[in-house]
């Protein structure tokens, strides 16, 4: 899968996560297949984007990698060590190296704690450092996220929302993680704020040698910040490749539709000839074969029978039976 010599920092193998659907008397009446057969690898130092519409499983993927959900099948390896598989308990030391950033990291600050206490807490849990050493580390990180050190004595309500966000990020960075998973980090932000937040992410990445997994539904943001991108549809990876290639020449019909739906300022009005109809089907009742076939204009009877695997060519994989003939 990887085309460089670097060993992958995170490898995901055939990962699946199914949620039981309960009916009368809590009996299981079905299963919601939020993730199925997901495999990919994250290379050190890259920003890997995960895009898709709501309900495609991108947040479930992030949470399963993080250990918030247990996988139903498959496994996740970090630097060669298995960190998640069905029934496995997660070791605490893994959590320090793999961090998860929620939509608004500032919201996870305790309103009754000073920022100093909030920032010391992860170090108290994960290290046995003396107080002075912790304080030194906290100060270093606070400066790196662009906050004055005097703010450490303040409470969350005394600083602005943007500053809370920075403190939330600082709290994640004090442990020195290697891989950070961002879950919709820019949704709900105005573009002027979004631009400064994206720049901060990029600066922190180069300063601390981080690798990012960047989950977002905003195609423009993903295009501007990610090195590689994964496109998901109904719990499956439908396309994976370098961002520039995927955006310039998408191979999967779904990726093509998704990209053509985003308005391009200066381009033609996309709404006038937008072809994709309807909305994704219910994930508790997925179509047979290719999951996109019910909305795909190129679907044939074969698509209903065969569930396509990722077909990799030059590091650009696509799960479609007909992509070769369609790209001609």
């Amino acid at each position: 899968m990887s085309d460089s010599d670097n060993p992958a920092i995170l490898e995901v193998d055939n990962l699946a996560r199914h949620f039981p659907v309960r009916g009368f008397l809590n009996r299981q009446v079905g299963s919601l297949r939020a993730l199925d057969n997901v495999s990919f690898a994250v290379e050190p130092g890259e920003i890997l984007g995960i895009v898709g519409e709501s309900g495609c499983g991108k947040s479930t993927l992030g949470k399963t990698l993080m250990g918030i959900h247990e996988p139903s099948e498959g496994e996740v390896r970090m630097l060669g060590e298995r960190i998640a598989s069905p029934g496995q308990k997660r070791a605490a030391r893994i959590r320090a190296r793999l961090q998860y950033v929620y939509q608004d990291p500032g919201a996870s600050l305790d309103p009754r704690w000073t920022l100093r206490r909030s920032l010391h807490e992860p170090l108290i849990i994960h290290t046995d450092w003396p107080k002075e050493k912790r304080e030194e580390k906290v100060r270093e990180i606070v400066k790196a996220v662009g906050l004055p050190v005097e703010h450490l004595d303040l409470y969350p309500h005394e600083i602005s929302g943007g500053q809370q966000r920075r403190v939330g990020l600082a709290r994640i960075l004090v442990l020195g993680p290697e891989l950070v998973i961002f879950d919709e980090p820019t949704s709900g932000l105005d573009v002027s704020v979004q631009a400064t937040v994206l720049r901060l992410f990029r600066d922190l990445k180069s300063e601390f040698d981080l690798t990012y997994l960047f989950i977002s539904h905003d195609l423009a943001v993903v295009q501007s910040i990610c090195d590689r991108v994964i496109v998901m549809y109904l719990g499956r990876i439908v396309e994976i490749g370098r961002t520039a290639e995927v955006f310039a020449a998408p191979r999967h019909p779904y990726t093509q539709a998704l990209l053509s739906a985003a308005p391009v300022i200066g381009g033609p009005r996309v709404t006038e000839n937008f072809s994709l109809q309807g909305e994704p089907p219910d994930p508790s009742n997925v179509p047979s074969g290719c999951r996109f076939r019910t909305r795909c204009q190129y679907a044939t009877s074969e698509c209903a029978d065969i569930d396509p695997e990722l077909d990799d060519e030059d590091g650009h994989g696509v799960a479609c039976l007909r992509w070769r003939e369609l790209s001609v």
Partner: peptide, 18 residues
């Protein structure tokens, strides 16, 4: 505002302050 829009190959500028 227009310069704050993310676009490939250009660093979004953003607007300082609030």
């Amino acid at each position: 505002l227009l310069d704050s829009l993310p676009s490939p190959g250009r660093d979004p500028v953003g607007i300082p302050g609030g």
